[in-house]
Amino acid sequence: MGEAIVITSGKGGVGKTTTTANLGTALALAGKRVCLVDTDIGLRNLDVVMGLENRIIYDLVDVVQGRCTVQKALVKDKRFDDKLYLLPAAQTSDKTAVTPEQMKKLIHELKQDYDYILIDCPAGIEQGYRNAVAGADGAIVVTTPEVSAVRDADRIIGLLEKEENVRSPRLIINRIRGHMVKNGDMLDIDEIVMHLSIDLLGIIADDENVIKASNNGEPIVLDPNSKASIAYRNIARRILGESVPLQSLEEEQKGVFAKIKKFFGMR
């Protein structure tokens, strides 16, 4: 039986959908059977980021309201021969069209067939959030190094800790810009992790290629050379239970000379 992980943040626009698409793709590349579930009813876009938009026939609401079977609604990603599927959100209904009980049942059903179910959560803490969390076994909280995003992440972690079926949430810090952190214009990673005090699953640099890739419907993780891609793959490996050390963004950016200076304790 598979594992269902909800990807959530409280605040909108911090990278939940991007993270869901890239981690799902990375897990499929690692040979796992993966199903992505978009619960952002009314504002679906996981299908766009995955480049699967024009294959949608049925959606999540059709499934829970019994208009079709799950199998029929699932969109297969042909790039990963039978490894990656998407259950799209409805575009026309709203979040109240689905109840947490229905979601629980649906996710349970999917867990029979897939190794990982990644649930893309809408922003907010209302019904959309409750639907997304209902069937989850684990949670990933995405934040950016901004005070407001961290505040919302803290709120969400507080709510997740009350969910009996959800294991302790883990953290991804997205869109880190090395120079802003260094100048003190952004919160730094240690500060955020200490403040939220949950396990850090990984960090992703702010990278315009992420946006380009999403616009093309090709998650960045398919480009083996980008830093963001490596970061997503590493996170996928950590989800699979490997212990992969965190690569520091600084080291990557500063080059060899900086590394040597660091080695000698210079600044």
Partner: peptide, 21 residues
């Protein structure tokens, strides 16, 4: 955490942080 309220009648000894909010 943010949005949470912890209320006791007597003295409170909290082993942990009170985050903003």
């Amino acid at each position: 955490r943010s949005g949470q309220i912890l209320h006791v009648k007597g003295d409170l000894l909290l082993i942990g942080d009170v985050n903003p909010g």
